[in-house]
Measured scan of single mutants.
Amino acid sequence: MGFKLLSKLLVYLTASIMAIASPLAFSVDSSGEYPTVSEIPVGEVRLYQIADGVWSHIATQSFDGAVYPSNGLIVRDGDELLLIDTAWGAKNTAALLAEIEKQIGLPVTRAVSTHFHDDRVGGVDVLRAAGVATYASPSTRRLAEVEGNEIPTHSLEGLSSSGDAVRFGPVELFYPGAAHSTDNLIVYVPSASVLYGGCAIYELSRTSAGNVADADLAEWPTSIERIQQHYPEAQFVIPGHGLPGGLDLLKHTTNVVKAHTNRSVVE
Rank of each mutant, 00 (worst) to 15 (best):
Q61Y: 05
V42E: 10
A25C: 10
L127W: 03
R226V: 12
S193L: 09
W220G: 03
Q228S: 14
T114L: 00
V166L: 09
H260Y: 04
D125S: 04
S139K: 11
R46K: 12
K251M: 05
R141G: 10
E44T: 11
S223Q: 03
A234Y: 09
Q103W: 05
L47S: 12
G210M: 07
M18L: 03
M1C: 07
T114Y: 00
V194D: 00
A95Q: 11
G131L: 14
V237N: 01
L159Q: 02
S70G: 10
V11S: 13
I74G: 04
A15T: 04
S38Q: 15
S30Y: 14
V194I: 12
G240V: 01
L217V: 11
A98W: 05
A130M: 13
A129D: 08
T86L: 11
E145I: 08
G2I: 07
G245R: 10
S62T: 04
V126K: 15
V256L: 14
D125M: 06
T207S: 06
E147C: 13
V146Y: 14
I50V: 08
A218V: 05
V189I: 07
Y12E: 04
T254C: 11
F168L: 06
T222A: 08
F26W: 06
N92V: 10
T114R: 01
G246T: 07
Y12D: 14
A136K: 01
V75E: 01
E145W: 09
L81H: 01
Y196R: 00
V126M: 04
T60Q: 15
G122H: 12
E267N: 02
F26P: 15
A95G: 08
H252G: 09
R206C: 13
V146T: 08
L185N: 15
P41G: 08
Q235K: 03
V189A: 10
H260M: 03
V28D: 03
T254P: 09
P152D: 09
E99M: 10
A179S: 03
V256T: 10
A136Q: 02
D64L: 14
E172H: 03
L96P: 01
R128P: 02
V171W: 00
A94F: 10
Y175G: 00
A144L: 11
E80K: 13
G242K: 01
Y196V: 04
G105K: 15
V256E: 10
I84F: 06
D119A: 00
D248T: 11
